[in-house]
Design a binder for these strands. Structure first.
Lengths: 244, 244
DNA sequence: GGAATAGTGTCTTTTAGACATTATGTA
DNA sequence: TACATAATGTCTAAAAGACACTATTCC
């Protein structure tokens, strides 16, 4: 189709309004019994010295998914390789960025907490903050990142009902029923009755696989607990609804 | 902060890689008992004369939501004002568009079927196609729009379980239980037992409001049916799960 | 009356909530 | 033995599936 070839050869991308594309990540972890989110302190303008979500500009030789993982590595010293990641939502409207029309594709990612992350590159500092504190701190976040965090939080709370993402918060491949339940309790902010929790999650096909291994739980006594690992389920049916 | 002001005054957006931002809409309706999606035939390159989702470039003086509604009006003669709309997902990776790095923010929208839409502007034709046909037609869709339609379809099928979007397919504000059930049956492709359906949806607080009005349903006889209207519920708890 | 559709009732099975009981481990 | 945690069992309540039955409304 020579017609189309000619069209493309003469096509001038610069005729379009100048927009830029960025990715931002809400990376959640459970730290000290609290759901926490990674923030970096901005080293450059705009919002210099304010806390913000890690993120940055998308290159034209990479996909959005690739850009997210690259930015996460660039802005923190530790090589955070999130155990779960998915796209959340795209934020674009006039004046969301003083530099111009800059769209942000936000992601949600989960990771077990390991060492303390340290800022690098554009980020002069990096830290996990308890979500409840961030929601109160309010004014000191850059851009519309507070809204993004709220949306990301709701996504995690909802998704844990029907997708096997809770183990993504746990350090080890093998985990006890109590550790799994604790994740749910922290994400939902509600206590769950252990026996009912156990019955429910064990009834979900291919969610938890018994390993036959056990772990001693507490130095003050208590029965040793069985270790499970994640099965290959993709979606729970029916879901495990949170208490009302 | 004079430092920041100086930074912004000298900021050059054109230093960024040339990307463009578009929106694309999967507008679903129920037509002749089938879930259908609006496609337009492209009048210009690339993919000239191929069917594609309606959409276009985002202007820098508008939000994504505004851009979607504008494009829908521009590309079809009838003023389609979708009764429901939400953002789906953003698609961006090298080579998804031969013109350059062009990101697409996809939306899902629902509308009752009214008159036949007609193409306008860049679209030389516009039509609702049954989704099952589109999924088979396969090769003739522009860009990655087949994938977007698949993702949009799954969003609708899932969302109808826990959000009051089914009435968005219905022409009148007031509707019968059968009309509502038919929407669910078409979206899920499954027959539902009428009595159980009725019990379930009526048990959802603030979903359906009795109007006290009735409508005669069939010329060959049959009891007249009560008309309901949509209540102000935002999310069903517990959800109305589709059959397995 | 007979066909067609709407709406109610009922029986059974499944799932969820609450909590008692048993099992097993340490100081 | 006292205490702590894990695992099982049991009773009840709520919800879902299957389907019979009643109520209208047309020809």
């Amino acid at each position: 189709m020579t017609d189309e070839k000619e069209f493309l050869d003469n096509y001038d991308m610069s005729k379009f309004p100048n927009v830029a594309l960025t990715v931002d990540i809400t990376l959640f972890t459970v730290k000290d019994g609290k759901l926490s989110v990674l923030l970096v302190k901005r080293g450059g303008h705009p919002f210099k010295n304010k806390w913000a979500l890690p993120g940055g500009f998308v290159n034209v030789d990479e996909s959005l998914d690739e850009a997210v993982l690259r930015e996460l590595k660039e802005e923190t010293t530790i090589n955070i390789n999130p155990s779960y990641i998915e796209q959340l939502k795209t934020y674009a409207y006039p004046d969301r960025d003083p530099r111009g029309y800059i769209a942000s594709v936000a992601y949600v990612a989960l990771t077990p907490v390991t060492e303390s992350p340290v800022g690098k590159d554009d980020a002069i500092e990096a830290m996990f903050f308890p979500v409840e504190k961030v929601l109160k701190l309010d004014k000191d976040l850059a851009f519309d990142h507070l809204q993004i965090i709220k949306d990301g939080l709701e996504r995690v709370r909802a998704k844990i009902e029907y997708a096997p993402i809770a183990p993504s918060f746990l350090k080890d491949q093998m985990f006890t029923m109590s550790e799994l339940r604790e994740v749910y309790e922290i994400i939902w902010g509600e206590e769950l009755i252990p026996s009912n929790f156990r019955r429910k999650v064990l009834s979900i096909p291919n969610f938890l696989i018994e390993t036959g291994d056990y772990r001693v739980s507490n130095i003050y006594g208590g029965r040793k607990s069985e270790l499970f690992r994640l099965g290959e389920v993709e979606e729970f049916y029916p879901p495990f609804k949170r208490p009302e």
